[in-house]
């Protein structure tokens, strides 16, 4: 036994080290993905017997007005959330200086990302408050009528996304600040000698060097947009009349809420969301695979 271990330890050791991590991850992450896929083929209230309905839940989804609303909102989230990337770059460029106290400024600008989305949601619902909220105080000051952003179907999703952009911009800013730190100063000097400056310099010299930071920023922003649940739940609970639902929220609502426990239907929505996400995950893994091969 002892000698077997001695002779083979380099082959056995990795599995020994991997075992607990893989076991936990498989139990809580990998298996559940497949379980959800299987549950999505059943009608199930979470307690009683499951009854097999095949593709029934997916067929029902195709005719579900609320599903399309959520899907549409998810697309809006995906598109508008991307604004966090240029916004983050802009803030990063603004802060990439060496004046006194700049480190404190950088930390304070990063603040919104550190606090919970629950707090961000509460702060913004209060900011939008139709009677005394700062937004409407400001609108009133320039002579406009107050807007109840979170109670108006037309604005509600945009209002929530604006709240989400605040921490997300802070996140992208930090990614770009560290990226800017690594930009090669010699190339900048060379470009300056060639009379490059301003936007041209940014586009042709700086941005190509910021590619790794941009990549991570896109990945985390896409995932953040598709995962958007906290803010919707806190700020509107999906309302008014379900108009601010996103897939993540709608799934939760179907699976367990006052509308009853429809685990199968909820799982079907989750599978759709998963498939959308899978497109990006595959892209990310592909990029990582290329990098690994390159080493």
């Amino acid at each position: 036994m002892q000698s077997y271990w001695k002779a083979n330890q380099q082959r056995l050791a990795p599995w020994l080290f991997l075992a607990p991590g893989i076991a936990m991850f498989a139990l809580y992450v990998i298996f559940p993905i497949f379980q959800s896929m299987s549950i999505s083929l059943y009608e199930w209230d979470g307690l009683g017997e499951k009854s097999y309905v095949g593709m029934g839940n997916y067929v029902e989804l195709m005719d579900d007005e609320a599903f399309y609303t959520s899907l549409k909102n998810n697309v809006i989230w995906l598109v508008l959330y991307m604004l966090a990337i240029p916004a983050g770059l802009f803030v990063a460029l603004f802060l990439n200086q060496t004046v006194r106290g700049i480190r404190i400024y950088k930390s304070l600008f990063f603040f919104p990302f550190v606090i919970s989305q629950v707090v961000v949601g509460l702060v913004f619902s209060w900011f939008y408050d139709p009677s005394f909220g700062l937004l409407n105080v400001a609108l009133g000051a320039i002579g406009l009528d107050p807007i109840a952003v979170l109670a108006d179907e037309r604005y509600v999703t945009y209002g929530i996304i604006a709240a989400g952009l605040w921490p997300q911009t802070a996140y992208c800013m930090i990614l770009y600040l560290t990226g800017l730190n690594a930009v090669d100063p010699e190339q900048i000097e060379a470009a300056r000698l060639d009379n490059a400056k301003g936007v041209k310099m940014l586009w042709y010299v700086i941005l190509p060097q910021l590619r790794p930071a941009t990549f991570i920023a896109v990945v985390v922003t896409v995932i953040g947009a598709l995962r958007s649940f906290d803010l919707v739940s806190i700020m509107t609970d999906g309302g008014p009349w379900g108009s601010s639902r996103v897939l993540a929220f709608y799934m939760y609502e179907q699976a367990f809420s006052e509308y009853g426990f429809r685990m199968g239907y909820g799982a079907a929505i989750a599978v759709v969301l998963f498939l959308i996400m899978m497109v990006y995950i595959t892209g990310f893994l592909w990029k990582m695979y290329q990098d690994e091969k390159g080493r």
């Binding site: 559940p32 995962r227 993540a248 939760y252 799982a267 989750a270 969301l273 998963f274 996400m277 990006y280």
Partner: peptide, 21 residues
């Protein structure tokens, strides 16, 4: 890659089974 991919999945796909578990 399994660890990396799992880390990015939407929580919702884990919700029902993890709650059961």
């Amino acid at each position: 890659f399994m660890f990396v991919a799992g880390n990015f999945v939407p929580f919702q796909i884990l919700m029902v089974p993890v709650r059961d578990l």
